[in-house]
Design a protein around this nucleic acid. Structure first.
Lengths: 192, 192
DNA sequence: GGCCAACGAGGACATTTGTCCTCATTTTAA
DNA sequence: TTAAAATGAGGACAAATGTCCTCGTTGGCC
């Protein structure tokens, strides 16, 4: 599972083999089965994670117990709860595994060390943050302006191939609509 | 209007007077009247702005011409279109003045220079970005899970005092609901 | 001062969306 | 293997929300 990470790094940053090895030397591998929690509400997020295989989700609950998914992290995605990790404060979010998954994990301290000592990694990390910011703004725009059908289409564009891997109620939870509405959309799209 | 900026800096970062003067020396002051565009869709965002007085908004339009407000920037707020500024690509968003406003502006080049040469400013800038990320995630959560009434209450919490400065249709545009719904909410809240 | 646009409210109605229920099928776990 | 839970679909109905309209007031602009 380290190979997947090396492959990802090679495609996204040009790091020397030594630097990649340095990153891996500070990483912890973890294999988790479906429904395992990586972070619970109230806990402090200790790790920055990279998903080498499987699928994680970040979600939040309301008082009535309903779950609302903020983000999916399939293989080749980074995953963490930035607010809790950066400030080392209790998280408002949960992270759990939607599928059996393989992860690489770094503590904040170790990753800060890597950012400070590997040329280019800091700039790359900042680029990721900037990109996530752009995605978040698009998502906000979509959430306040798009119809459920447009949101559904956008979900499939943002997460190609994910639809067949997750139950519909998670798609609905991500989009902010009821399962019933999703069913209607899918039925309507079959007509075309 | 530079005084407002100095006051803000003093409260949020500890910079030497020389550093503050350095920042001001690279800034351009601008006074704009209501409805002036600072950025249009398709244009490249050239500046990072600080609002010393007045109120800006960032919004996006749909094909039908409807406007959807992503963010307000009242006095003492930073305002820019990060994606367009960072990548120097055409913006998908508009920025205009909701009230007559006073601004300080820096080009990306100059602000990068300041970040590189003023100790603590880079860390502060990153802190702003991290904080905005947290706000965006909360907004996404709110957008996909909250009722219009809850969103309205949250708006008043996030932007205290702004309600009386902007027309209702802008609040509706920010929340992603119709003006009619807002009117209903306000009527219902009067009953209590 | 006077005109026109913007604003906030509200009625009437249509549409969308949600809730609650059942049902058949598949998947999971004991 | 078998029972229980999860899943996807759909019917019936209620609730929420949007659209279109009018109306009176306010505020900016010539």
């Amino acid at each position: 599972m380290q190979a997947a990470f090396q492959e990802y790094i090679r495609q996204h940053i040009s790091l020397s083999d030594q630097d990649v090895q340095l990153m891996l030397s500070l990483a912890t591998e973890q294999k988790v089965s479906k429904k395992t929690f990586l972070l619970r509400e109230g806990e402090v997020c200790r790790h920055k994670m990279f998903v080498t295989g499987g699928l994680l989700r970040i979600y939040r609950t309301r008082e009535d117990g309903s779950e609302h998914i903020i983000q999916f992290s399939p293989e080749q995605y980074w995953c963490t709860e930035p607010e809790s990790l950066n400030k080392q404060t209790p998280s408002s979010y949960y992270i759990d595994a939607v599928e059996d998954s393989h992860l690489l994990q770094w503590t904040k301290k170790d990753f800060d060390h890597l950012n400070a000592n590997i040329p280019g990694l800091k700039a790359y990390s900042e680029g990721i943050i900037a990109h996530n910011m752009d995605l978040h703004r698009q998502r906000i725009f979509s959430a306040i302006s798009a119809t459920p059908e447009e949101k559904y289409d956008e979900f499939m564009r943002v997460y190609p191939g994910l639809l067949s891997r997750i139950p519909l109620h998670m798609v609905a939870s991500y989009l902010g609509v009821s399962v019933k509405t999703l069913t209607r959309i899918r039925h309507a799209q079959l007509q075309r």
